[in-house]
Write a protein that binds this DNA or RNA. Structure first.
Lengths: 199, 199
DNA sequence: ACCTGAACACCGTTCAAGT
DNA sequence: ACCTGAACACCGTTCAAGT
């Protein structure tokens, strides 16, 4: 493939941190985290890989931090009307979908990268509970428990537990649609367990 | 460093899958997942990196699968006496410690690798609940919820949320030992929320 | 200021060869 | 059967150079 750098360089929309992160997320969603390399990212941006370092001086580390921030920082609506149970149920559903849509970054969310992303989310959950009348200590525990559950459940879900499906099929005979786990229903049920346990 | 291959090769305990996995886990625990390379693992085993492929034909993929199996496959004691709540509380405490002791492999547990490891653990939780008199459907939900919570909480804990500690310090004034989060207490409290929600 | 191109020190893995 | 050594196709990153 032949390039015409000087011509392309002028007609291209310039590089930006925003565009780099979004392109990287697109690669991870489409091909997996293992195929996200600086060189491939450069190709997708129609730029030499080394140009990325001008916008992200800390290199790939900073790129991965940006991905985590982009998917894990999704706070609950602290000004929403209604019971806190409903507000948190709605948040949890959205957050789960977000994590599943970008399952490739889940391992990064779990690693130490980018403390701020999850902390903002955690603070919003605590705020919803406090405004709903839950005591300070119980709110801190519940916020942590809820976020832990949502992340942990998403992790189990992503792994796709084929054997779990097989076990359910054996236990339930031939009823239903063939024994496949209904993840939506199971998530909602587990969410009920968690929210129902908050005092 | 000069080697004497023929002499060393004879005096060394031979390579085995067991020894390879354990040495790899030692590297991950001590230096982090990012520093686990086939060449470094070979050095630690006092062997050329390529010798590992003779025991793990699928290479690094198989090595990582082995690490997950080694830490994530820790089923509950299905024949334990006492209330199921106490059995599961004990299991959860042990499993959490296991995950925290090998925090470097948590990202691997979260990824698709090795479905069998978590499935065996999940089945044991369901069995404890069923023997305790919980209905089939509720047991499946509770097992999933519990495992999800323990993994998710461990993930939050590993990230060490420094900002969370700062927020708690502001909210609580100068009481206690300086406002640091008591992770043990928080884990137990969250566990109470989850177990208390099971019908 | 923004991007390129060559170079460096690594990776995982294959493959022929040794014992 | 078990291990070695060279080789291949990649990595992330630095650095001098171009515009």
């Amino acid at each position: 493939m032949v390039r015409q750098p000087s011509i392309n360089a002028q007609n291209r929309t310039p590089l930006s941190t925003e565009r780099i992160i979004e392109t990287a997320l697109h690669i991870v969603d489409g091909q997996g985290l293992g195929r996200l390399t600086m060189r491939r990212l450069g190709d997708a941006l129609e730029v030499e890989a080394m140009a990325i370092y001008h916008h992200l001086p800390r290199g790939k580390e900073q790129l991965l931090d940006g991905l985590v921030a982009h998917v894990a920082a999704a706070p609950a609506d602290t000004s929403a009307a209604g019971r806190w149970q409903d507000v948190l149920r709605a948040w949890a559903g959205g957050y789960r979908e977000r994590l599943l849509a970008h399952a490739g970054v889940l391992p990064l969310v779990v690693t130490r990268r980018n403390p701020a992303a999850l902390t903002a989310t955690l603070a919003s959950l605590r705020e919803v509970l406090r405004r709903g009348g839950v005591a300070e200590d119980a709110a801190a525990v519940a916020a942590h428990t809820l976020l832990g559950y949502v992340i942990g459940h998403a992790a189990l879900e992503v792994r796709g537990t084929a054997e779990d499906g097989a076990a359910a099929r054996i236990a339930s005979g031939e009823g239903g649609e063939g024994g496949a786990v209904d993840w939506d229903a199971r998530f909602r049920a587990g969410l009920g367990v968690v929210l129902g346990g908050v005092r």
